[in-house]
Structures are given as C-alpha cells and as structure tokens.
C-alpha cells in the first residue's frame, strides 16, 4: 500500500538523514521502526506525509505519488494519513472535543471549522471514537487538564477521525510510564486490526516493538540495517542497529501477557527509553 523507493533526505546543513530507503508496507501491516536517536526515524515518517520534504526518491500511497503533490492535492493526501505524536501534540487550550474534531479539518471549510460547526457525522464519529479510546467523560475538559496517557488517547482519536488508510506514529510511548505505554500500544494495535490500518510506529522500546508489531525495521544512520519479523531480532541484530552493548542481559522477550505485567527488572534494560 505504501511504497518508498530510493528515498533520500539531506538537510540544508548537509546532514544526510536518510539514504536510499526502499520500503514497502502492505495494507494492514503494523511495522515498528527502531533505531538509535538521530537514525532518521522521525524524518522517515515525516517524509511520508511531507511535514519534511524528501530530497529525492518516490513515495507512493496506493496510486498516489506523494512527493509531487502540492497545495490542495497534498492536503487531500494527508487526510488519508493519521499521525500520532510523541508529546501528543494536542492544542492545550482547546477542549478534548475540539482536538478530536480537528482531525476533520481537511474536509471542512475554514469558516465552519472556525465557528466549530462540524457536520453531524463528524460529531457522531468523534463521540464514538472517544468512547472507543476510553475517554467518554473527558469531552468538555481542556486538553491540558488530562494525564499523559489520556492525552495520547485524544491524539489517537484525532488521528482516527481522519478515517485514514495509514497511521504514522512517532514515539507514542516515549513520554509515558511502562504500564500506560503498553495500554497505548495495545490500543493502537487493536484499532489497526479493527480498521485494517497499516501503521509505521517509531519506537525506542524494543520489547514493546517486539510485542506489538508484525514486522520490525531497524534504522541506523539513515539506512535500513534490519528488516524482519520480531522473532528474528536477536542480540546480534540489535548490535548492528544500536552498536555494541550487553544485550544478553535482556532475558526472554515477553511473549505472553501474564508474565509481562510485572516486568522483570532485567527486562527493562532492553528498553532504551528516552526521547529522540
């Protein structure tokens, strides 16, 4: 569904963020993108919805060549791609409902959105999504009155209100505690399954990536150095992606829910955590 061919991004400072990335994401696949800070994970997903302009290469979503779009066409293409952010990226001074409804901005004219007169189906869908992500009681609260996990749920509802074909998820759990991180990842995973959504999830936490993704792609210094199933990720490949480290202290990767709830301390050493 999403195909990247020879995508390269060079920043004006001369830094090469991405070099000749070739990547295909089939419909409905949840892919985790792992790699050290500065490897180009954020740049990669931002190239897809053109928040960052790729220097060269081709990115196709379905039949649309995204790299050549401009103005109105670009905005239409962006509607098909929901984005979820590390710091939630909600507008703090707006209410939860306004934040969720802003997912429909691409389909509503300026004055309607300015006067907050959204079409009835958008409002109904927003109510339904807030229910689905577990925040029916928070509709009238201001976004900055919520906790981190709740805010990320609002961010997810906003992205889904776009009715996207693809989710671009940038470090969804980096600002959250381990339990909330799992809940959020599980929610994203479930929603992708319900709607047969493809997703690219940038994530630092390798254990979470292994647990919740269908496929893992490892990025190092702007190049893909690993592409395979979560089971194929071992200490050797982690060294290829992140560099030398004592990976073997990780213990068994958590496959089953029950054993993972009180995460054993050595398990946590695998989560590199932190912000990018």
């Amino acid at each position: 569904m999403l195909t990247l061919t020879q995508v390269t991004k060079r920043y004006p400072t001369g830094d090469r963020a991405l070099t000749d990335i070739d990547l295909t994401l089939p419909a409905g696949q949840v892919m985790a993108l792992i790699g050290p800070s500065g490897a180009g994970k954020s740049t990669l997903i931002r190239c897809v919805n053109r928040l960052v302009e790729p220097t060269s290469g081709s990115i196709r979503l379905g039949d649309t060549e995204l790299t050549r779009l401009s103005g109105r066409e670009l905005r239409r293409a962006r509607r098909a791609m929901g984005m979820i952010f590390q710091e939630y990226a909600l507008v703090d001074r707006l209410t939860v409902m306004e934040n969720v409804l802003s997912g429909r901005l691409g389909q509503v004219g300026f004055w309607r959105s300015f006067l907050r007169r959204y079409p009835a189906d958008a409002v109904i869908e927003a109510f339904r999504l807030l229910e689905r992500v577990g925040l029916p009681q928070a509709i009238d609260k201001r976004a900055d009155a919520l906790s981190g996990g709740q805010r990320q749920r609002v961010g997810i509802a906003r992205a889904l209100l776009q009715d996207p074909q693809l989710l671009l998820v940038d470090e969804p759990t980096a600002s959250l505690d381990p339990k909330t991180s799992r809940q959020i990842m599980r929610l994203i995973r479930e929603l992708c399954a319900e709607r047969e959504l493809g997703a690219i999830i940038n994530i630092h936490d390798v254990a979470l990536a292994q647990q919740f993704a269908d496929r893992i792609v490892g990025l190092r210094a702007g190049e893909i150095v690993f592409d395979g199933s979560p089971e194929a990720l071992d200490a050797e490949t982690l060294t290829t992606i992140y560099g030398e480290e004592e990976w073997d202290t990780q213990g068994q990767p958590a496959d089953d829910e029950t054993s993972s709830v009180p995460a054993p301390p050595q398990h946590l050493s695998l989560a590199t955590g932190g912000t990018s």
């Binding site: 905005r75 909600l90 507008v91 997912g103 901005l105 300026f110 961010g155 776009q162 671009l168």
Partner: peptide
C-alpha cells in the same frame, strides 16, 4: 508540534 499535528490532518493554511 501542535502546528505540525494540525497540518498533518490535511488542514488548510488558515485552519
């Protein structure tokens, strides 16, 4: 980041 997020929804410049 909120500006990025709003742009990512496909909103127009004024929106």
């Amino acid at each position: 980041t909120p500006v990025e997020a709003i742009s990512a929804t496909g909103a127009g410049r004024l929106q």
